[in-house]
Design a protein around this nucleic acid. Structure first.
Lengths: 184, 184
DNA sequence: CAACTAAGTTAGTGACCACTCACATACTTC
DNA sequence: GAAGTATGTGAGTGGTCACTAACTTAGTTG
């Protein structure tokens, strides 16, 4: 059986999407290239023609995640400044996080950052975001720190699936950081 | 060759310590029980006599991490309340984080929380901390959220090794969240 | 249509890994 | 000192995994 023929770049994007789903669930070390290939609908060796190593693929996935956040922030802050821009970007983040894969992959990237190449890719994504928020809001460091600190707490809350945990402390946390995630 | 004989409980603690080091570096899926056994100075099969599964061992490690933080917070807040208690616990956290293993293991626990058993253990640790901080400070939810949000940003910053990154944005982040981690 | 290139596959391979089994050796207790 | 129990090991085992080699098929171009 042969997959429908496709340009390599297009196929690569498709594989990155499949890999995102798998890496989000099981992390870098816990995901097999076989699982990714199956989800992408291609043979497993072909993954290695498109990406030299599993690590390269993981880095491509992480980079793509950060890019999506970057673009969403950029669009949200367009024409705004100061607290207006900050709030717009915060809002944009909670919308993005409806896609839990984006978020868990981010956590896996931080966790896997012991590896130098993965660390550098993750750093680059994070730095680009930081500088963007700084530029778009013009706020002092305290404001940027608060923005990202809240974001990271949201990530952890989602990792632990707190929105589905019917306990007051968890509901309070969600209500204050990302009310959009409340389920009922 | 046979290891010096030891009570099972004592040996278990020793293995948890060795496993902490290995899991911190490579995460749950990325760490082999062989590596843990080697570090602990025992045979690999004996790991499985002490802990039924690799997952059980990982959970023991995660639980032990949270317990260490819990005890440190408890001691720091002793006899204090309100912002005093909060500051004391924040200070205690930055001291704890001199041990990077504690912190990276935490990140690995969040990342591995897709597994239900690991998620529950991690949740339990997090909840215990949250309720302790709430009780010890008596602050409203906003204050607790801010405390943990900052903590999570510190975790990420340490994962990305930002203290060693000589860039202004990173140094600013560190200076505002955990100045104790500045290296020079 | 022949020569070439790009897309994709099948069939491995060597290494590793969680976990098991059967056995050995040291303490304890009566 | 014999019997029992807890601590520990050596030698597998079935399965998985990242990655490779060699081949096929589909477009493309002169």
């Amino acid at each position: 059986m042969t997959a429908v023929r496709m340009g390599a770049d297009e196929r690569r994007e498709l594989v990155v999407g499949a890999a995102l789903t798998e890496f989000a669930r099981s992390g870098y070390a816990g995901t097999s290239t076989e699982a990714i290939a199956k989800r992408a609908g291609i043979s497993q060796p072909y993954v290695f023609r498109l990406f030299d190593t599993k690590k390269d693929l993981f880095i491509a996935v992480v980079t793509s995640c950060f890019n999506r956040v970057y673009n969403a922030f950029l669009a949200a802050a367009d024409g705004k400044a100061g607290m207006d821009a900050k709030e717009a970007m915060g809002q944009a983040y909670t919308v993005l996080l409806q896609d839990r894969e984006l978020l868990t992959t981010q956590m896996h990237a931080y966790a896997a950052a012991d590896d130098p190449e993965i660390r550098e890719a993750t750093r680059n994504g994070f730095r680009r975001l930081w500088l963007l928020v700084q530029r778009a809001t013009g706020l002092p460091d305290e404001g940027i720190v608060e923005f990202f600190a809240t974001g990271m707490l949201i990530n952890v809350a989602a990792s632990l699936d707190l929105p589905h945990l019917r306990e007051p402390w968890a509901q309070g946390l969600i209500a204050l950081t990302c009310p959009d995630m409340i389920v009922d």
